[in-house]
Design a protein around this nucleic acid. Sequence first.
DNA 1: ATAGTTATATTGGATAACCAATATAAAAAT
DNA 2: ATTTTTATATTGGTTATCCAATATAACTAT
Lengths: 99, 99
Amino acid sequence: MKCNCELKGYLSYLVLWIISKKNMTGAEISKELEKRRGTKPSPGTIYPVLKELKDKGLITCDGNKAYSLTYKGKTELKQSCSFFCKMFYDIKDMFDCCK
Amino acid sequence: MKCNCELKGYLSYLVLWIISKKNMTGAEISKELEKRRGTKPSPGTIYPVLKELKDKGLITCDGNKAYSLTYKGKTELKQSCSFFCKMFYDIKDMFDCCK
DNA sequence: ATAGTTATATTGGATAACCAATATAAAAAT
DNA sequence: ATTTTTATATTGGTTATCCAATATAACTAT
């Protein structure tokens, strides 16, 4: 446990979430992550994640390299959201906490 | 990346958050985590986390083994909350997603 | 077409996160 | 007091997560 802020492990979940809102290329996803995290993920971070999600059949990639969720990916994301929201059911208080 | 649902990395953050609401013993913290995650963390998970947080000066332990945040811990938690909330600024949509 | 730039992808490795197994200590019950 | 149960703690090791470095491919501009 190096730094709580890093929240290791959220990344692939977040990538699914980001793609669910809009089909995006790797570069676009990286930019979106930069907005959220403050730092852009290294290519060695983002592309292996995309590859794994693809290998697991959760996302597909069209001719323009834009990634989108498969049906399986949508299902998986719903489950993850469900888990996430249960885990952080009191996140509203967290928003208040840092104000 | 085994399973997004595991959200590896959230644990120490969550422990800080839980303690911030109420001073608790290791056993109580475990129960609270079980409520959120579905499974109780193994002793080999929770106690090393508590030890590390203690070693980092973020929590202290009173005579009854109840853990509480130090000033440093409160500061750290605020930062983590801030980061977390920026990362998941659109978490409201996630709540909708799994309904 | 060629050079320069940007995007995509792979590899290898470091380390953080976690758990199972075990040990010890404390509390409760008989 | 002794047994049983529960809580706390440690150790050792596995795996996931992530990044730096590098390579390749695909655009853009001249």
